[in-house]
Write a protein that binds this DNA or RNA. Structure first.
Lengths: 206, 206
DNA sequence: GTCTATAGTCTGATAGAC
DNA sequence: GTCTATCAGACTATAGAC
């Protein structure tokens, strides 16, 4: 089955354009040119721009849900946490995009209320997944979190979103390593020119 | 001296509108209505929109530089770090704004190159300040960072930016406390319903 | 489902009077 | 410095043929 329907192409291109330029940074004209149809035809699939936006966010959330579901729940919590960060790094490193949720959250003041709710749902889902993993890691000892799971989950997700923006700003795909380094623990002499981030350690300071 | 010149009003309103709605979310029309002049008059002060943008970013960076300069360098590094986070919390809690740097970084793909450079300079200044404080704290023992100062500074600034976006998204002015909690250390039983964030502690896990 | 054609509005920007 | 008047182009959206 050829799943590259016009509708799915529109959603995919809309996602990409928002991630690159922000919510107000793209038009039906851009979209039509990319898909190879006229702007009027887009309205057949998405009568209002808000309809397209909602479809883009919901599809994005499902895509991330599927991606996170590939992280084996049988693995130690600490490793799952690193795989979560690595998933973000691999997805966005070298691209000119950020997370769709973060991109929309930044333009919040010009977002229709329903889109705002969809973005909230995306944030909640990520923060809850992280909080669950952190709590489990604290139980089984694979993590030693220095804050309550929910607080740490929120801080971590915020750091990931901010890191994606900074990575793109500086064209530096390695910035996620900074968070990984803080997660994994670090050299005892923190100001020296230690060139080896302790990626392989299991001790977690968070 | 009455410093509320038309030019300064334009810059201030432009800053606010970008922080609320993003780079592409406001127009000369909005701005003119707020200041009480016509759109054509704005072009006298800022011939192109990019000129206005650059003025807004540069003014913002100076404002933050002045605000951070109020943090007494004689204080312990750990306390200066908390004051830095508190400055952000106090500035944005209860508002519908995020940091101008973060707002522009999110719309990077539609930013003129010179504006992009100005945003980079803003990020670098903040990350450098944080790295210096963290390195000093590691030296004098007022902090025990679990990552190298530069990595920790970048993660922390990313977390602050992400936290501001999430705070506004959920209308929750207390989210900066999550970062403070991770910075200050936390209960040894992280999953319990401990209602007391350890705000007063000095031990820093970061 | 896609098209042409078009409406009505908003956009950044310019010319020239005052 | 601010105005009126205007521009050319972009925007979302609609009507109706195919």
């Amino acid at each position: 089955m050829d799943t590259a329907t016009t509708r799915s192409q529109l959603v995919a291109h809309a996602q990409r354009l928002i991630q690159q330029r922000g919510y107000n940074g793209f038009s039906y004209r851009d979209l039509a040119a990319l898909v190879g149809i006229k702007t009027a035809s887009i309205h057949y699939h998405f009568p209002q721009k808000e309809d397209l936006l909602l479809a883009a966010v919901h599809a994005y959330q499902q895509q991330w849900h599927a991606a996170i579901a590939t992280i084996d729940p049988a693995l130690p919590a600490g490793q799952r946490l690193r795989l979560y960060l690595d998933l973000h790094r691999r997805t966005f490193a070298g691209t000119d995009r950020v997370c769709l949720g973060g991109a929309l959250a930044a333009d919040l003041g010009s977002l229709p209320p329903l889109v705002r709710q969809a973005v909230q749902a995306f944030y909640r889902a990520n923060e809850q997944w992280l909080a669950d993993v952190i709590a489990e890691g604290a139980r089984d000892g694979s993590l030693a979190p220095h804050a309550r799971p929910r607080a740490l989950a929120r801080s971590l997700f915020a750091a990931v979103q901010g890191c994606l923006a900074a990575s793109r700003l500086f064209g530096d795909g390695h910035r996620m390593d900074d968070i990984l380094e803080g997660l994994a623990g670090a050299p005892e002499a923190p100001e020296g020119g230690d060139p080896e981030p302790a990626h392989t350690r299991r001790a977690v300071a968070a």
